[in-house]
Design a protein around this nucleic acid. Structure first.
Lengths: 342, 342
DNA sequence: TTTTTTTAATAAAATAGTATAATAAACATT
DNA sequence: AATGTTTATTATACTATTTTATTAAAAAAA
C-alpha cells in the first residue's frame, strides 16, 4: 500500500478541490460545506488511512509545536543523576497534554554548545527547557533578549530568566538545622558539585545560614567539594576523617555522593548515626534502603519537569515575557541516618 | 532585528536569483558559480546571520533527519530505572554525530500507545527506537511490515525485529554459576519484573540453566517476582526468609530491587554474605557503594544506546531490512556480596 | 423579473526551500 | 562566419498544506 497519500489524492477521488478537503478535515465549520461532500471526503480520508503531513502544515502555519529539552550537564553528573528520568517524565506529561513534541539533546562538550541556537534559528523549536546552563552562554542570552521562550531548570539564581526549581537554600538550611537540633556543633558539609554550579552554591548558603542561626562559626576545614559521583564522596570523606578533630555530623548535598561517603565511614568501622550522623539531599529511589536509611531532602523531579513545561507553554502561548520563577518547597524526609529513632 | 530572513532576502540583496543563493549555500560546486557572486552571497548570508528553514527544507527533500525514541515502560520502572540516562546519552552521541535529531516520548498509558504511529504517518520521524514494546502492538507490526526502520531496545526474543540488547540469559547463568562455585545449593531468585517482560523471562532462563549445569533441581518456592522497586525487593525477601528452609544465596535480577532485599536481610540481623550471599544485576552507579558492595552484572546502557542508534541509522540509510541483533556480552563485576574476599 | 443575499465550492497565492530545464553570453572548433 | 561547447545564471516547477479572494448557483427579497 502506498503510504504517501496527500490531500490532493483525496480531492481527486472525492472530485472536489484541495481546499474543500482541507476545510473538511480541519473542521472549519465557518466555511459552509454541505453534509454530502463532508461525508464523502471524511469517508475517503478514513479509508485511505490519511494523516496530514506535519511538515507541510508547519511550513504554512509557521509553528512546529515542538519544544527543545537540552541537558548541558557535566558528563559525570548525567551518568550518576538518577533524577533525569523523573524530570523528563514531568516534561513529557505536560507537553503531551498540550499537544507539544519534545526534541531532546545533550550537549556534553563545548563545540556543540550552540545546538539550541541552531534549532531555534532553523525554526525547529518554539521554546527551550534548559538544564544546567552555563552563565557565560552568549547565544542563550541573545535568544532571551529577542524574547524567545526559555525556561531554565534548577537555576533560581539567574535573575533574567524564567525557571523551575526547588528552594535549595531553604532546604539545606532546614536539614542542617535538624542536625543542630540533635546537638551537633561540628558539622561538615560535602557539596554536590563544584561551586560554579549554582545549586551547589545555594546549598552551601543554606548550610551557612543554619550554622549562623545556631551560633556556630563556619569552619573552612569542615567543607569539602564533591562532584557528582559516589567515588567523590568516598574520597572526600577520607579527607574529613583524617582531621585532628573530626566532625560529629556531615551534610552531604547529594544522596549519590552520600552513598560513597557512608561506605567510607562504615569501612573505617564507625557507626552511622552513633559515631557520625549523616544527611543527604535528593531522595533517590534508593535512599530509604541503604544502611542506615538516609535522612534527606526530597527533590521532586517530576514536579520540576511539570512546572518547567507549564511555565514554558504559558510563555509561548501568551507571549508573556515577564520572568516567572516557580520555586518549590522541598521537604525533609527523616530516616535513621541523622540519629532520629523511628 | 528581524530574525525571519529567507533566501529570498539574500537573493534580493545580492541581486541574484533564489536558485543561485541555494547553490552557493549548499556548496553545489558542480553548478559553476563565479567566485564573485559566491563571495557576495556568502557575505550577505553571514552578515544577516542566516539559517535555512529546516521545515521548508524537509518538505522539499522529504526527509526530516529525525528519529523517535519511545519509552513504553511501566511507570514504576521508569521512575526507578537508573539506566535510562545512559541509554539516552548513547543514542544522543550517535545521532548527533550522524546529524539526526531525537524526538522523545514516553507513553505510559494505553490511550496514546500509538503515538509513534502518528509520528511516522505525519512524516515527522524516519526511524524508531523503542524501549519495552508490548508484544500485542498491531501498529508496530504494521509499520515493521511496511519496512519502516525500527530498532528495539532490550527485546532479544522478538524474532522479526532488529534490536540492541545484552545477553540476559548468559549473564544470569554466569552469575548464578558463580554462586554455585561458592558451594551454594539452595539459591533463590527474585526477578526484576513480572514475567511478561522479556528481560525478566530471559534472566530466569539463565538462572535455570545454571542450576541445571550444577545438577540442582529448580525449586518453585525459591522463586519470587520482583517489580522494579526497592520496596518490592524488601517485601519479597520477607517472604523468602519466612520459608521453613531458607536459601543460602539469592540472585536478584536487578540491583535496585536488590537494595531493598539487602535492607530486609540486614534488618533481620543476618550478615551478607556470611549468612546469606546475594548478587544483583545492572551495576548501577551505586552498586559498588552499598554495604557490602554488590556483586552484579554490568549492564552497559551507554553501549546499548550507541548500538541501537548505529543499527537504526544503518537500516535507514541502506534500506537494509534484514533483522540484525546486536547482543552484547555482559560481564560480571565481582564485589563482596557474593562471598568473594577482595 | 430583477436584484440582493446566502450557500457551496474553488482558483490562486503563500509558506521557504530544492531541482530541473532553459537561456544567454563567452569561448572554442571547423 | 557558422556551429558547437562551456560557463554562469535564472525561470519555472515542485514539495503538502492553509488562507484569502473569487465565483457560480441557489435562495430570498425587492
Amino acid at each position: 500500500m502506498n503510504k504517501n497519500i496527500s490531500m490532493k489524492d483525496i480531492a481527486r477521488m472525492a472530485k472536489v478541490s484541495r481546499t474543500t478537503v482541507s476545510f473538511v478535515l480541519n473542521n472549519r465549520t465557518e466555511m459552509k460545506i454541505s453534509e454530502a461532500t463532508r461525508k464523502k471526503v471524511l469517508d475517503i480520508a478514513r479509508k485511505l488511512d490519511y494523516y496530514p503531513n506535519a511538515i507541510a502544515k508547519s511550513l504554512v502555519t509557521r509553528e512546529t509545536k515542538t519544544i527543545g529539552f537540552f541537558l548541558g550537564q557535566d558528563l559525570r553528573s548525567v551518568l550518576s543523576d538518577v533524577l533525569i528520568p523523573q524530570v523528563l517524565l514531568g516534561i513529557n506529561k505536560v507537553a503531551l497534554k498540550k499537544g507539544y513534541k519534545i526534541l531532546l539533546q545533550y550537549f556534553e562538550d563545548s563545540n556543540n554548545k550552540s545546538s539550541y541556537y541552531h534549532m531555534v534559528r532553523e525554526k525547529r523549536i518554539e521554546g527551550i527547557i534548559l538544564s544546567s546552563p552555563r552563565s557565560d552562554d552568549e547565544e542563550l542570552i541573545k535568544l532571551k533578549e529577542e524574547g524567545f521562550p526559555i525556561v531554565l531548570i534548577g537555576q533560581a539564581e539567574k535573575k533574567s530568566f524564567s525557571c523551575s526549581d526547588i528552594d535549595n537554600t531553604e532546604a539545606a538550611r532546614k536539614i542542617v538545622s535538624h542536625l543542630i537540633s540533635h546537638g551537633h556543633k561540628r558539622i561538615a558539609m560535602v557539596t554536590n558539585a563544584p561551586l560554579n554550579y549554582t545549586a551547589s552554591k545555594l546549598r552551601l548558603l543554606g548550610y551557612r545560614k543554619a550554622l549562623e542561626e545556631g551560633n556556630i562559626d563556619f569552619n573552612d576545614e569542615l567543607m569539602a567539594i564533591g562532584n557528582f559521583t559516589p567515588k567523590s564522596g568516598f574520597d572526600v570523606m577520607k579527607k574529613l576523617l583524617s582531621l585532628k578533630k573530626i566532625p560529629t555530623a556531615v551534610f552531604v548535598a547529594s544522596d549519590v555522593i552520600a552513598f560513597g561517603a557512608m561506605d567510607y565511614i562504615k569501612r573505617k568501622g564507625m557507626k552511622i548515626p552513633d559515631d557520625m550522623a549523616l544527611v543527604g539531599f535528593d531522595n533517590t529511589s534508593l535512599s530509604g534502603y541503604v544502611d542506615p536509611p538516609l535522612t534527606t531532602i526530597n527533590l521532586p523531579g517530576f514536579d520540576i519537569g511539570v512546572n518547567a513545561t507549564s511555565l514554558l507553554i504559558d510563555i509561548m502561548e501568551d507571549g508573556n515575557t515577564s520572568n516567572k520563577k516557580i520555586i518549590l518547597d522541598a521537604n525533609m524526609i527523616i530516616r535513621r541516618s541523622c540519629g532520629c529513632n523511628l
